[in-house]
């Protein structure tokens, strides 16, 4: 065991997989020599060489498009989009090709590609550096999307993503890259993609969150003390969504609150609430509820507080749903 930040845990997983599997390559804008703008890939080029860990032109369609070609020709590329807000030129490749190649070729070509991208706000960044765009990926059949909230999951999900024979989008919650450390095994392990994690068990209400927002939610729950027994679920895979875990939990608690950083309309909260309606309707004791950012453009830093969901508000909302009669 070693203690690692979430950032270090990702680096550790990448290093290990580059070491264990010669078909793994890693690339992106500034991802090679300097180790990325957040230094997630620091040291990897030095260890694994410039052929396998390299910088690319500013070319998001090129990064994803070439990964499709590489994977078709036997490689397992791990690509980096510098910020999720800049993924759009590469989104075409992800939506129209990466998600479909297995189906299009009836299994002749499958694409073991990982697309890493830092996402989320609250870091006083420039425009386009703070979005939570998970819905856009979750809506596309053929893609998987994971979001770790702990160093342990960050390493396990990255290892699983690299070994997966389908394309996996890997969102990195940049706000908590270095926020805390956790014991992480040094040996290889996987966290299964498609499985939620019950952070704590409870009987009064089910609260679902993921990524950096999970930690705000945990703060809120701590503030609640013993008044309300919260079952907290870290969704951690957005697609394919482990809604069964949520449905089973709501059958027990009768109440649901989804908390997410992404904007409201057609956010992941909508989907979870639909599935809980379908799967646990007769168990419900309050209307399933979501607490999200509003449907506005993420404000520049001086106005960002109006946009972000924080712990006191989460606490209020949990109380509202838990005490609803």
């Amino acid at each position: 065991m070693a203690t690692m930040t979430l950032l270090k845990a990702i680096n550790n997983a990448l290093d290990q997989q580059l070491n264990n599997d010669k078909s793994v390559v890693l690339y992106g804008e500034d991802a090679g020599f300097e180790g990325g703008v957040f230094r997630v890939t620091a040291g990897l080029q030095k260890t694994h060489g410039k052929d396998r860990v390299f910088d690319t032109p500013i070319s998001e369609a090129g990064i994803i498009g070439t990964a499709i070609g590489m994977a078709s020709n036997g490689m397992r590329p791990v690509t980096e989009i510098q910020f999720s807000g800049f993924m759009f030129p590469g989104f075409n490749q992800m939506a129209v090709h990466m998600a479909r190649m297995r189906n299009r070729s009836r299994g002749k070509y499958n694409l073991p590609i990982v697309v890493r991208m830092p996402y989320g706000g609250g870091v006083r960044a420039l425009e386009h550096h703070s979005e939570s765009l998970e819905t856009l990926f979750a809506h596309i059949p053929g893609l998987k999307l994971v979001i770790p909230s702990t160093p342990y999951d960050a390493k396990g999900l990255m290892t699983a993503a690299i070994k997966d024979n389908d394309p996996v989008i890997y969102f990195e919650p940049k706000k908590i890259y270095r926020a805390f450390k956790q014991e992480v095994p040094e040996e290889e392990y996987e966290v299964e993609i498609g499985k939620a994690r019950t952070v704590q068990e409870g009987s009064d209400i089910t609260v679902v969150s993921w990524g950096a927002m999970l930690h705000e939610t945990m703060k809120a729950i701590k503030e609640l003390g013993d008044d309300i027994s919260v079952e907290l679920i870290d969704l951690r895979t957005i697609a394919p969504m482990d809604s069964d875990a949520v449905v089973e939990s709501v059958k027990k608690t009768g109440r649901l609150l989804v908390v997410h950083e992404a904007v409201k309309t057609l956010g992941i909260g909508s989907e979870l609430i639909s599935r809980v309606n379908e799967g646990a309707f007769f168990h419900l004791e309050a209307q399933p509820t979501r607490l999200t950012s509003p449907d506005i453009t993420v404000p520049l830093p001086k106005g960002e507080r109006h946009h972000i969901v924080d712990a006191p508000r989460i606490k209020q909302e949990i109380e509202k749903v838990a005490y609803f009669e």
């Binding site: 498009g65 070439t66 499709i68 070609g69 036997g74 590329p77 090709h97």
Partner: peptide, 9 residues
Amino acid sequence: NHAAGVAHA
């Protein structure tokens, strides 16, 4: 871009 990737591999 796919061709570039195939060639890169």
